[in-house]
């Protein structure tokens, strides 16, 4: 059965229509969850609003469990599902840079598009920054390409690196997720009492 497009069950000409429809659903969920506000998002780092952790982690858990279930039922050919390759050094550096960008900007690319849609100027500037950042990276690429391609582990999965099955890893993530949901709920309640310049939903 799935994935449908790689197996030719849905043909290529539908690609962009599907992309647009999935994108609309994605944007709707992001905006409706409160991600069009950078102050909502940044709350995850200061304990006054954990909406990012709740939405993000729940989504990861649902998708992981769903994928395992689809695989178990034989509904999806896992070998055809793209596994993002791991370039260790480059990804470590990239994540640290993105982490800094996240605390400064309060958006990530996807959320900034939804914030632009509802009229946030700061999101437009953030997206302009994205453009400039990617341009600078591309211009500097000849000098950094060795580093960019270094430590290539290929399309390695979490289970291959940690030596546990995907099922066990998912189970651990679910347990850790539940603890995180509960813990951050307590933290949030406490922190909100001390903050006045922010309205809570």
């Amino acid at each position: 059965m799935g994935p449908l497009i790689p197996q030719g069950i849905i043909t290529g000409e539908w690609d962009f229509v599907i992309a647009l429809l999935l994108g609309i659903a994605f944007g709707f969920i992001l905006e409706a969850s409160g991600f069009s506000s950078s102050r909502n998002i940044a709350g995850v780092f200061y304990g006054y609003n954990f909406v990012v952790l709740r939405v993000f982690l729940t989504a990861v858990l649902v998708a992981m469990i769903g994928l395992l279930y689809f695989d178990y039922m034989g509904w999806i050919e896992m070998d055809l599902v793209y596994v993002l390759p791991t370039y260790l050094s480059s990804m470590v550096l990239g994540s640290v840079i993105m982490g800094l960008g996240f605390v400064l900007g309060g958006f990530c690319p996807g959320t900034s598009y939804t914030a632009i849609a509802i009229g946030k100027i700061d999101a437009m500037v953030f997206t302009g920054g994205l453009f400039l950042g990617i341009f600078l990276f591309s211009e500097a690429f000849p000098w950094i390409s060795d580093f960019y391609y270094s430590d290539n582990l290929g399309s390695v999965t979490i289970s291959e690196v940690l030596g546990i099955s995907n099922e066990l890893f998912t189970f651990i993530m679910v347990v850790m997720g539940l603890v995180a949901f509960w813990g951050t709920w307590l933290i949030e309640k406490k922190v909100r009492k001390t903050i006045k310049h922010y309205k809570f939903e």
Partner: peptide, 28 residues
């Protein structure tokens, strides 16, 4: 923040959507 996120997402092979969310969910 946008500039940094732009640079970081290239080194990281994707941003919080493509790498962190989708990557983790597909067990990368």
């Amino acid at each position: 923040g946008g500039i940094l996120f732009g640079i970081g997402s290239q080194f990281g092979r994707g941003c919080s959507s493509g790498a962190a969310l989708s990557g983790t969910a597909s067990f990368s």
